[in-house]
Amino acid sequence: MADQQILLKTLLQQRHWQTYKTFCKEYDKAAKLVDSTLQGKWPSRAQLHRWLSGELKGLPYSDHCRVLEKMFPGRTAEELFSPNGHQPPPRGSIEPPRNAEPVAEPGSTPQMADVTAVFSSRSAFASAYPPSVLFDTAKEINAAGLSLNVLCQSYPDHRLKRLLENGTRIRCLFLDPKGTAIRAREDEEGYEDGTLVTLTTLNISMLTRLAARLAPEAAELLELRVYDETIRFNLLIVDGATCVVQPYLPQARGVDSPTIVINDNTAADGLFPVFDQVFTSMWERSRPV
């Protein structure tokens, strides 16, 4: 069955519920209707990957089956975990024409995994994904890199303030301006005047001043940390669903780096969980400002 997409994955894609965060949200809605004690007991990310890969032997635990059947009325758990081409549609649904061409889902080609866009530089990426598009409706922003200019220089203070006051959680991980790694990067990029140290210090100070103007409950949502390690990536993860990866190239400025956009589609071989874990491990090794 592993070479055939199961019905559950197809239905999640059709409803745009394929990101892990969205799946858990919809799972909770159905769980509340089935048994309120099942809320919050969604599968782990790894479990969901196994479900959707088609490699699960048998069915999940009965409670999971009950919730999934509520999420997709008219479908049994057996149908949901069967190849989608072998099951009839629910009663009342409309079948596509038999001569219709299949439509490839984004990231469905094995070579692309969950990568949805690639840009040759950060400026090309910024033209396609301006900060307002990335952040204006975000509920969670995790950023790690060097100076984090996309948040500190390209996005207005008053909008950051509004996000925090509306409950958005923002975690920023800067390359330590007092460390050795940032000076090594300055040497690599050809700076001789402490440019990156000064810029990073300025950006941290800007966010610190912003936090000081917030009510305590909003200020707690803004977390600033630093790390002192060889810089490899600039990472931006929005709402646990979209990840922007910008590698640092030898002897090249950060703005000249290629940029990869990844949308979590719970693909078993996807890159989103990889970079999500990179951010988590870096955050755990860092120290508060």
Score class of each variant (00 low, 15 high):
residue 115 V to L: 08
residue 116 T to A: 07
residue 117 A to M: 08
residue 117 A to P: 05
residue 118 V to N: 08
residue 119 F to K: 06
residue 119 F to W: 09
residue 119 F to T: 07
residue 120 S to C: 11
residue 120 S to N: 11
residue 120 S to H: 09
residue 121 S to E: 04
residue 122 R to M: 06
residue 123 S to F: 07
residue 123 S to G: 00
residue 124 A to P: 05
residue 124 A to D: 14
residue 125 F to M: 10
residue 126 A to H: 10
residue 127 S to M: 13
residue 128 A to K: 07
residue 129 Y to A: 04
residue 131 P to K: 00
residue 131 P to V: 01
residue 131 P to Q: 04
residue 132 S to V: 11
residue 135 F to Y: 05
residue 136 D to F: 02
residue 137 T to C: 08
residue 137 T to D: 11
residue 137 T to Q: 13
residue 138 A to T: 01
residue 138 A to E: 02
residue 138 A to V: 04
residue 139 K to P: 00
residue 139 K to G: 15
residue 140 E to G: 09
residue 141 I to V: 11
residue 141 I to Q: 00
residue 141 I to T: 02
residue 142 N to A: 11
residue 142 N to Y: 07
residue 144 A to R: 03
residue 144 A to Q: 06
residue 145 G to Q: 04
residue 145 G to I: 01
residue 145 G to N: 01
residue 146 L to M: 13
residue 147 S to V: 05
residue 148 L to D: 01
residue 148 L to R: 02
residue 150 V to T: 12
residue 151 L to C: 04
residue 151 L to Y: 00
residue 151 L to I: 08
residue 152 C to E: 06
residue 153 Q to Y: 07
residue 153 Q to A: 15
residue 154 S to T: 10
residue 156 P to Y: 12
residue 157 D to W: 09
residue 157 D to K: 11
residue 158 H to Q: 15
residue 158 H to T: 14
residue 159 R to S: 15
residue 161 K to P: 05
residue 161 K to N: 10
residue 161 K to G: 08
residue 162 R to A: 14
residue 162 R to V: 05
